[in-house]
Design a protein around this nucleic acid. Structure first.
Lengths: 180, 180
DNA sequence: GCCTCCATGTAATTGGTTACATGATTCT
DNA sequence: AGAATCATGTAACCAATTACATGGAGGC
């Protein structure tokens, strides 16, 4: 059983051969809305995948670069991973944990906090929508890339609307009303 | 600078005195929708907070239990944390990473996967809605607990609708149409 | 006496971030 | 010549999970 990062790398290398550098860029760009990883995590993980026979080096390029691709065994491992039942996710959001304690700082600071959160999610939403416009309209991989990005778009939209609702709700209660 | 867990514990202990066991239960129940932590993380962190003078033991009860509460310094630290700008979140969702690679397993397995995701989020949504009905309708802390729970509700609703949309979209494309 | 729940701890391991370190190639 | 970018690696540290370990108190 590999780590999620391992499967992510394996999935990318099942699509086409890439160097560690290119894989790192993928996690920082095309995959940033679902998973992220720095190069210091990628290179050691590639060594593990190679030792396990799931990928192999298929090319040695300029600047000491090594290009890997998935072996038949590696591609089979990805497919098995994709068919496994999803484990329960443990939610962990620092911004939302803070909201839980926001009554400790008074209405003004609370309002400031919620407005900043709304702005943050609004910006992220705009960024995702810009990326969505650039995804090609054909191809199997592009379709599923678009589908996963849509989740990011909907989550950011939901959080933007939530932050705006939260500000109104807190305001209404402080004005003497009842919570929603 | 404390870890997020440290601030979470400090926030709870600023509200009322609690034992490590009770704090662990809070993370497993009332706070489960924003943060989670097991007892093996809680006890060592309490020792750190005490060493830093942010909490102090105020009671020794039955079964060797120790009850802690936040010091004035501790409460000030929580308020500073609540007023800090939120850092950018690095998104990391294994289920969504899998969606990115879902074209590798064919339409039937993809549909099965998306339906399972929809069901998972639908169940989580129902659970959060049940908890929401039990939160008292008055009190500052209860209001902000309800507001943070609303984020969970909206996120689960968004993901449920996304999974249903994704199934329809993938289906439509495979039937020869164009992606949305 | 046994089971369950309360209650607290430590150890080992994994996953992830930040910092350190180096060298090759291309562009200006 | 110098800067930017490509490219790969290691080390130290922190956060979190799983497993190990123990014991008290109350109910049946």
């Amino acid at each position: 059983m590999l780590s999620t990062l391992g499967y992510g790398l394996l999935g990318l290398l099942a699509t086409r051969a890439m160097t560690g550098y290119e894989l790192t860029r993928m996690f920082d760009r095309s995959l940033a809305h679902v998973w992220s990883a720095g190069h210091s995590q990628v290179y050691p993980e590639l060594a593990k995948l190679q030792a396990a026979g799931l990928i192999r080096q298929t090319e040695s390029g300029a600047r000491r670069s090594k290009r890997y691709s998935a072996t038949a065994e590696g591609r089979a491992a990805v497919r098995r991973w994709l068919k496994r039942a999803t484990a329960l996710e443990t939610i962990r959001s620092e911004p939302l944990l803070r909201v839980f304690f926001l009554w400790m700082v008074g209405p003004d600071a609370a309002r400031t906090y919620l407005r900043a959160e709304a702005a943050r999610h609004r910006e992220q939403l705009a960024e995702y929508e810009a990326i969505a416009r650039e995804i090609p309209a054909s191809g199997e991989a592009a379709l599923w890339s678009r589908i996963s990005l849509e989740a990011g778009i909907r989550l950011e939209r939901a959080m933007t609307e939530w932050a705006e609702w939260a500000e109104r709700t807190a305001e209404a209660v402080q004005a003497g009303g009842k919570p929603a």
